[in-house]
């Protein structure tokens, strides 16, 4: 099944990076993929979102308007995208930062207190990756091997010491 995903939150939460890991996982599996960021005046503290598609077929529009997966990392993004999710879609809510509940009953929702989990486990700043771990459990967008390889590929060489922490965050999310 194709993945048409939107991940959204504050700038600085690693929205684009998390999206890149998902995209690379699909690439490593030999799928067609696209990754499209919101761009412009967004910066740390502003809003950021990213569309990711993984498919067996060539991807038409990389701009996802009716996602079948939505990860919300802050309140404004939750409000902006929640009603665009395809019926039957998967919604993952960063519940340390979003107090709201999803009022729709036609989507599958997981609430993950990712920031709190990250803090408790010495993985500060990796809430985004915890949520990707959770998504992997809910919607196997790639093989597990590809997912871990994608982390190795996406963490820049200068920060190679963080690869293990990222993998730990993925596992934490998978088991949350």
């Amino acid at each position: 099944m194709s993945l048409n995903m939107v991940i959204a939150g504050f700038g600085g939460q690693g929205i684009l990076f998390a999206g890149k890991i998902v995209a690379y996982s699909g690439l490593i599996d030999g799928k067609e993929i696209s990754w499209l960021p919101s761009y412009g005046p967004e910066m740390r503290g502003g809003t950021a979102n990213c569309s990711i598609c993984i498919s067996d077929k060539a991807i038409g529009s990389p701009l996802v308007t009716t996602p079948n997966v939505f990860i919300a990392m802050n309140g404004p993004s939750f409000d902006k995208f929640i009603n665009s999710v395809e019926p039957g879609g998967i919604v993952i809510v960063e519940s340390s930062l979003i107090n709201k509940k999803v009022e729709r009953d036609d989507v599958k929702v997981s609430y993950v207190p990712a920031s709190a989990l990250a803090e408790e486990n010495g993985l500060k700043g990796l809430a985004n990756i915890i949520l990707i771990g959770k998504l992997f459990k809910e919607f196997g967008f790639s093989s597990e091997e590809a997912l871990y390889k994608a982390v190795e590929k996406c963490v820049p060489a200068k920060k190679a010491h963080l690869i293990e922490a990222n993998k730990k965050a993925l596992e934490l999310g998978m088991n949350s």
Partner: peptide
Amino acid sequence: DGMLGQMMEP
């Protein structure tokens, strides 16, 4: 255009 410039693809 901005979409092609900003997006990533293989």
